[in-house]
Every structure is written in C-alpha cells, then in structure tokens.
Design a protein around this nucleic acid. Structure first.
Length: 100
DNA sequence: AAGTAAGAAATTT
DNA sequence: AAATTTCTTACTT
C-alpha cells in the first residue's frame, strides 16, 4: 500500500491539508471509473470547494501516481488537465472509463 | 488581492 | 427542452 507512504510524502511536502486530502482521494479512484470534482470535494469535507479541488489537483506533485485524469466535471465535460485535456481524454480511454 | 482543472442558476435559442 | 452564458463558491499563492 503506497497510500500510507504517499500521505507521508504529501505531508512532508508541506502541502495544505485540503490539498492532501484531495490528492489522497484522487489516488483512491478505481481504474475504469470517473469521479466529479464535486464528488471529491464532498469526500474532502468541503462540498462547495469543487474549484479548489481542481486547484489542488493542478498542483499535483505526482501526476503518475495520482490518477487525477479520472476526475471530470459534473455535467459530463472533461474539465482540465495539467498536460492538456487532449491527453486526459486519451488516458480515460485507456482506462476504459470512456464508452467510446 | 487575484486566479483557478467547477457548479448551479438564469437566460436565450 | 436544450444549449450557452453569467455569477458565485472555496482554496492556494
């Protein structure tokens, strides 16, 4: 379980509490599934902080370890991605989260 | 004080 | 009813 180690590192990085929580939750999203920013925000204890969630994911220190590409908008839109939304779509397709 | 990877509501078509 | 636009929310720097 790298989750515990991940948490330690995040804490060590001096990231904000909210950011740590968001990243942890994002890392727990199962493969092939997508979550909304709202969903993550709710799990973070700040249901109305949907934007802050995106903000936190943007500063994601481990873009490979944390599947932030599985977090999309609530209305079905892809949202944004640090490396470009195009890549995000590709990643989702690889995960099988996109029907087609 | 300003910016953002969003959401929901309001307005228009 | 569906699509688009606008305003508001909460967090980080």
């Amino acid at each position: 379980m790298q989750r515990a180690r991940l948490l330690s590192i995040l804490k060590n990085k001096g990231l904000s509490n909210f950011q740590i929580k968001v990243l942890t939750i994002a890392a727990a999203i199962p493969k092939g599934e997508t979550r909304t920013y709202k969903w993550v925000a709710k799990l973070s204890g700040r249901p109305k902080a949907c934007r802050a969630v995106g903000n936190a994911l943007n500063k994601n220190p481990f873009p490979v370890i944390i599947p932030c590409h599985r977090v999309i908008r609530s209305n079905g839109a892809i949202g944004g991605y640090k490396l470009g939304t195009k890549k995000k779509i590709r990643a989702l397709r690889s995960d099988g989260a996109l029907l087609k």
